[in-house]
Write a protein that binds this DNA or RNA. Structure first.
Lengths: 213, 213
DNA sequence: TTTTGTGAAGCGCTTCACAGCT
DNA sequence: AGCTGTGAAGCGCTTCACAAAA
């Protein structure tokens, strides 16, 4: 396989999460089917997309037995294939309830990402909140983002401000935005955006619920 | 079209969000293409899946002109087609930073969903936090969920507790779980689960970013 | 025998192209 | 002319089925 398809990428990310909290015992594709609901065929196909060199190291216990995948080895093979084997810096923009909650996320929840800064227009919040990362007033965003080489932002500002702040982030050099404001952002196509819309997630849940009557 | 495909559902949900913050002017499929990046063909196809009767009412201004879709009418056609035209109750379980942030979401961010209750094992939090909805100690979950007819839960407990609490929610009669704990939940297939894994979203962002070099 | 890895078949989504309406 | 609605073609993902390995 040349490229890993978008659906497969999503499954592999989820699989990584399972593997990280799995033991050392090898997992067969049939067992993974039980944990995920995807067919074992799909799982094996996804894994075979990782590329031949990565596969060898993912097999069995010490040497190549063929019953199952070694969780740790498979996880790192996925990480390599998806080019996630590098730490990246992100910041939190907007330190209201949601933003300050994400300021205090534990490291194990954030994987290979490092929280490098937090921003808010309200200088009070910047001074009062305690945080594992330094906090700055919003007017310093461009400078700090450039200085620290921050690549991504969690956008946690109110809906009314989201578009304006997103544009500032883009000019500051941010390349990926995780948007929590319930607004469809308009940004240049080179900027990656992913939305976390709680209401939309609830709607998807509702749709899935009615199908399982 | 009989059934609306999963990808189309996702696009229609996002489209609803655009329509809600759009004016009264009709939007053409070409304009929507500019806002979303999806081809105008795809958009028209998605909309045609909504069913013939809904379509008539979604056209032009007052009567059927054929330049564009009337935002409000189209939004309600989507709502009807996806069977989202009913209010549903949800609760927040785990009132740490993240959970209490979601307790205080504004109504316009939640659409047709009503926050009916919050739960935490820590009785202190239950008494101290101020919230627009009543808060209860965790041992009352089953009783309150049944009494109020709560259908869904935002699961905001720590990772270690997530699986246990999820199982309690299932036996209490919850049918959909929006899981914020970075853990792959094991629940019966009849229960709908959607995960909000911030680290996975950041990983997806990182993958999208590298493709746009 | 159990389980992986993979070409090939099958199928569902997207794209295309054009008829129909205003 | 411009835009929508839609059958049909095209294509990508999933599923199947089986060879190969342990």
């Amino acid at each position: 396989m040349d490229q890993i398809s978008p659906p497969a990428r999503g499954r592999l990310l989820y699989l990584m999460r399972i593997l990280e909290s799995a033991g050392d015992e090898p997992l067969t594709s049939a067992q993974i089917e039980g944990l995920t609901g995807w067919s074992s065929n799909t799982i094996r196909k996804d894994i075979s997309c990782l590329g031949g060199d990565a596969m060898g190291s993912a097999h069995g216990h010490g040497m190549g037995s063929c019953n199952g995948y070694a969780p740790a080895a498979l996880a790192s093979a996925i990480r390599k294939a998806l080019e996630l084997d590098r730490r990246r810096k992100f910041c939190v923009v907007g330190l209201g309830r949601l933003g300050s909650a994400y300021l205090n996320f534990r490291n194990f929840e954030l994987g290979e990402f490092d929280l490098a800064a937090g921003f808010d227009t309200n200088v009070n919040r910047v001074e009062i909140l305690n945080s594992p990362a330094p906090l700055y007033p919003a007017y310093k965003m461009a400078e700090v983002i450039t200085r620290f080489g921050i690549e991504m932002a969690l956008l946690c500002v109110p809906a009314e401000a989201a578009q304006t702040v997103a544009e500032k982030l883009v000019t500051a050099g941010i390349r990926g935005i995780l948007n929590f404001a319930p607004v469809a952002l308009k940004v240049p196509p080179a900027i990656a955006v992913r939305n976390v819309f709680v209401a939309d997630e609830l709607r998807s849940l509702a749709i899935n619920m009615q199908s399982s009557i």
